[in-house]
Every structure is written in structure tokens, then in C-alpha cells.
Design a protein around this nucleic acid. Structure first.
Lengths: 242, 242
DNA sequence: TCAAAAGTGTTAACCTTACACCCATGG
DNA sequence: CCATGGGTGTAAGGTTAACACTTTTGA
């Protein structure tokens, strides 16, 4: 969200913004892309990248442009999905600003670089955001909460987990995605069976990769299926595993 | 707020609209609430109810107001949920109009009445909309398609089906909701077991109701659970109904 | 007594879970 | 040889699907 009303071409859409909840996995931690705001309001505060949608631009195009401008990330290969729209009067001190939140997941993404409206861009561990160590501008904390729950649920019934993996990937890497995001450990052998029995989830490449130590792991690519049936459900019994 | 346009009170939000995809069940058919537009563009064409969001109004409030104004329906007891936001340039001949689509489901709702901006309001069978018998204004056909898929999927993992039933309801009525919306028949006895074994889905009232003929059916109310675990999945084997 | 609708029981097939075990590699 | 992580096998327990069967009502 940048400056209020730059030139008249943008008046038409100048109360419409997009914000991006971009997640990646780094060092076995779920990370969220944040920028340090370069402009008021909330100057200097961390916020999700985002900004005004321009005339003759679709929401998706605006989201990709802001991602490039504020963090220097090319999102055209990310899986970008609408999360929700936030429009409560009062959510932005400047008046009614409507924001459409987008959700995207990617494999370990490049280090972001700051841009015009963002002093700097960085990856922040989601754990630090959830426990209140880090405060976000606007109502971005609320958006984060909904984004997280959405990601966790989509892991169950879509093949979205594979979007976190750099291709080609091993089944252990894919399993790690589930473990990190769900916060629970999964049995490797049962996980393997489920994934391989779900048609179209992953596609074997025939190649292998050597781990630091141990037997080589088979490599896979993303399959063509998006909806998983049956879904890969979390442990239902509320209990946390070790 | 600044003085940068006294009239901005209306300008500010005049390109933000809400549209409502309201579904109900009538005569064992899935019906959608439509209005005949009283104003240009698309005057005289059927469209989902909806309209401009006013200043100091949340999206939800705007949705409820439009529902009351255009169709005379009190939606405060419906389960109203955001579906998505549509903002492509060109989706509205007047320029960039952003619409937030809401999804709501209800038991057999009262006959709608026309209002100020709508000549008349009526229930249309979704089947007629899907097979192209009836054409909708704007991109409402696209919204309908997404709303339908969303409803079908939410039936699986939320207790939303109960929102279609007038309380108290029988398990057969609840099963009918699934059958009509999924277009497939379910085994009554297995359905009953699943529902009753899902904690918090329904709540027995202890009362009974006499069907036209046959044994009295136990009556239930909606339970407190929203997410179903495990979910009630559709038949996975691509099988079509008899 | 019959038809219709609600509700119960049963069994075979399937899937999940937990865990034992084997395999391939580098050191 | 050992340690480590990948991968296979298997038996117990649970869940599901299909369908036979019983119950309760009005006519």
C-alpha cells in the first residue's frame, strides 16, 4: 500500500489494494515474506507486501507486480490464490481501503530485496508472528491467521504441499512440508504409501539423489492432480505427537 | 479524514459492490435467488442480488442490506460467507467495478419480493442456470460456477448442510440436502451412522415427526461443530448416480 | 395386513497404524 | 564394519459399503 493518490489515472482504483501472504520453507521453518514499510501509515513497521491495484490491471496482475516491486520476487511460477477481502471501515487510517489478500506458497525462494515503497524485504519465521514477538501493520495479523489456517487445511485435500518443494524432490522433503506446517510428525512409510497411492500427486523421475548419509532417495516431480482424493488428513485425535 | 473531496463519501465506495449467491432447497431442487434488474446495465436481465457498499458499512452489512432491499429477505440468520472478489477490468461496462461475492445457504426461504433496484425477485432452479437455459448478467455465471463447487466441497468437511434444513429436522431431510447438491444417492443407514458418529454435527431433540406414511423420525437440531472430522466424503469412484 | 419410511445389524473389503525389518550409501 | 536415512512388509484394529432385516406408523 503506497502513496495516496499519485496521479489521476489511478484515482479510479486508488482504494483497492492487494496484499500478499507468501510462505516458504527455510531451515525447516515456515517463513512469511514481509517488508518494512517505507511510507506512512505504519512507516517502518513490518507488513505483508502489497499495494494499489492499477487501472486496467487484474487483481492477480497487481499482486504479481507488487511482489516484484517490493520484494524483487518473480511470482509468475508461484501458486497464487485468493484468500479473502478485507474492507471494514477503519481497518486503514486513511479511510476505506479495500484489500484483497492473496496466498502463495513456494519452494525456498530467493532472498528478497527492498523496493520503492518498501525499505527492505525479509523472511520472518511464522512462529515469531504467531507468538506476538513481531507486530504487523494494519490488520495483517488477522490476515495471517486466516492464511495459515487455510494453508493447513489445503495441505489436506490439495497437492499444494508440492508447491513448497523445489523440483525434483524426495518424498522426505515433501513429508517435511507436512510436518513443519502441521507441527506433527508423520510415519515415513505410511506417508509414502498414501502419496504414491494418490493418483497424480507426484510423478517419478527415475532419478535419485544422495542424502548427506544414507541410501539414495528417489526423485519426483509434481503430478497433474490438484484435488487429492482421498485427502491426506491430519491426526484427528487432538493429541500432539512427539 | 482529510478534506480532499467532500463528495468522497460516496465516490469512495461507489465502485465497490457485493453480490449474493443465495441457495435454498425447494421441491428437492437446488434453487438460487435471482432478481430481474431494474436499472441499466443489463436492465431486465436476471442477476444475483447485490449492489453498492455504502460508507461506514462492512461488506457483510452491505450484503445483508442489499438482500433485504432487493429481495425482502432477512439474512441475519443465514450462514453468510465470503466466496471471492471479482475485479477484472471489463467485467462491468461502467468501468472498474469490484464485487465481493458472498455465499449463503438457507432452509426453504420465503418467497422473495422485488425492491427498489430490482423489478422482481424469484427462485431459479440451479439446473436451468447450469445448462444454459437462463443467462445471467455480468460475470454472474462464472460466480455461480465457483459458488456451486464451493458448496459441494464444503458439504464434505463442514456442517453446512444443516444450514439448509429448517429446525428441527430429520436425518432424511439432511441426507436429501447431500443427495440434491451432490447429485448422488447415499445409503440411508450408512449416512445415519456417519452423521451420528461425528461429534457435534447434530443434536437430538428427543422429539419425533410423522412422515406422510411410515415410522416416525427422530428430530435433530444443528450441533455446535462446524468442521467435520472425519469429513463426509463424496463417492470417490467417479461413479455417476443411477 | 400392507406399504412406506425409520432405524438396526452384519459381513466382507478396504484402509490405517504401528512397527519390524531390509537396502544402499559414505565414512 | 557402523551409522544413517530410504524403502518394503505385515498383522491388528478400525472404517466403509452394501444390503438384509426389524420397527412403527397410517390406511
Amino acid at each position: 500500500m503506497d502513496d495516496w493518490l499519485k496521479d489521476s489515472d489511478e484515482v479510479e482504483a486508488s482504494w483497492l489494494t492487494v496484499d500478499l501472504a507468501i510462505f516458504t520453507l527455510r531451515d525447516d521453518q515456515l517463513m512469511m515474506l514481509l517488508v518494512e514499510r517505507g511510507l506512512e501509515p505504519f512507516r517502518g513497521k513490518p507488513a505483508m507486501p502489497g499495494g494499489y491495484v492499477q487501472k486496467n490491471e487484474t487483481l492477480r496482475e497487481g499482486a504479481l507486480r507488487e511482489l516484484a516491486e517490493e520484494a524483487g520476487i518473480d511470482g509468475s511460477r508461484l501458486h497464487l490464490e485468493q484468500l479473502g477481502t478485507y474492507a471494514d471501515p477503519g481497518r486503514d487510517p486513511r479511510g476505506r481501503v479495500v484489500t484483497v489478500a492473496y496466498l502463495a506458497l513456494g519452494p525456498d525462494l530467493p532472498d528478497p530485496v527492498g523496493g520503492t515503497d518498501a525499505e527492505r524485504a525479509f523472511w520472518a519465521p511464522v512462529a515469531h508472528l504467531e507468538d506476538g514477538t513481531l507486530h504487523l501493520a494494519f490488520d495483517h495479523r488477522e490476515i495471517l491467521t486466516e492464511a495459515l489456517e487455510e494453508v493447513r487445511r489445503r495441505l489436506e485435500y490439495t497437492a499444494v504441499a508440492a508447491a513448497f518443494c523445489e523440483e525434483p524432490f524426495t518424498l522426505t522433503e515433501l513429508r517435511t512440508v507436512y510436518q513443519v506446517i502441521w507441527g506433527q510428525n508423520l510415519d515415513p512409510s505410511n506417508f509414502r504409501r498414501k502419496v504414491l497411492n494418490t493418483a497424480g500427486f507426484v510423478q517419478p523421475t527415475g532419478q535419485q539423489r544422495l542424502p548427506p548419509t544414507g541410501r539414495p532417495a528417489a526423485l519426483y516431480r509434481r503430478g497433474q492432480a490438484w484435488l487429492l482424493s482421498p485427502p491426506l488428513l491430519r491426526a484427528t485425535t487432538s493429541g500432539r505427537r512427539d
